[in-house]
Simulated assay, not measured.
Amino acid sequence: MPSSVVNHFIYFPETEILRIIYQSGAVYEYFKVPPEIIGKFKEARSKGQFLNKVIKPRFEYRKIE
């Protein structure tokens, strides 16, 4: 099911950076996100809810676009 919040995401395991491309076109990077969180994110029925409840509160991030 497509997300109304997340357009696409890329995970860089060597640096544990999660790059989120939002539907709005904004791009953010979340730092030190462990692989087990990415696994749960991939399986999440709602990417937006998982992002808001699990990733945003726990991991530092910055807007890159």
Rank of each mutant, 00 (worst) to 15 (best):
M1I: 09
M1P: 11
P2L: 08
P2H: 12
S3F: 11
V5K: 07
V5H: 02
V6D: 02
V6Q: 01
V6E: 01
V6L: 00
H8P: 00
H8M: 04
F9S: 14
F9Y: 15
I10A: 05
Y11I: 12
Y11D: 10
Y11C: 10
F12T: 14
P13R: 06
E14V: 15
T15E: 09
T15C: 05
E16D: 04
E16T: 13
E16R: 07
E16S: 06
I17V: 15
I17A: 09
I17T: 15
L18W: 09
L18M: 06
I20V: 15
I20P: 06
I20E: 03
I20M: 07
I21K: 01
I21D: 02
Y22C: 00
Y22M: 02
S24Q: 03
S24M: 03
S24K: 04
G25S: 07
G25I: 10
G25A: 06
G25N: 10
A26E: 06
A26K: 08
V27G: 00
V27A: 00
Y28R: 03
Y28K: 04
Y30K: 09
Y30C: 04
V33H: 09
V33I: 14
V33N: 08
P34M: 04
P34K: 09
P35Q: 05
P35D: 08
P35F: 02
E36I: 10
I37C: 06
I37Q: 08
I37W: 07
I37L: 09
I37H: 08
I38R: 07
G39W: 15
G39L: 14
G39H: 15
K40E: 11
K40I: 08
K40T: 07
F41M: 12
K42I: 11
E43Y: 00
R45Y: 12
R45T: 15
S46G: 12
S46F: 15
K47P: 08
K47D: 05
Q49T: 13
Q49P: 00
Q49D: 03
L51E: 12
L51W: 14
N52R: 11
N52D: 03
N52Y: 04
K53M: 13
K53V: 12
V54K: 05
V54F: 00
V54T: 13
I55G: 02
I55A: 01
I55W: 05
K56H: 05
P57E: 11
R58Q: 02
R58C: 03
E60P: 06
E60R: 15
E60H: 11
Y61C: 11
Y61K: 13
R62M: 03
R62Y: 03
R62P: 01
R62E: 02
K63Y: 10
K63G: 07
I64M: 09
E65H: 02
E65T: 13
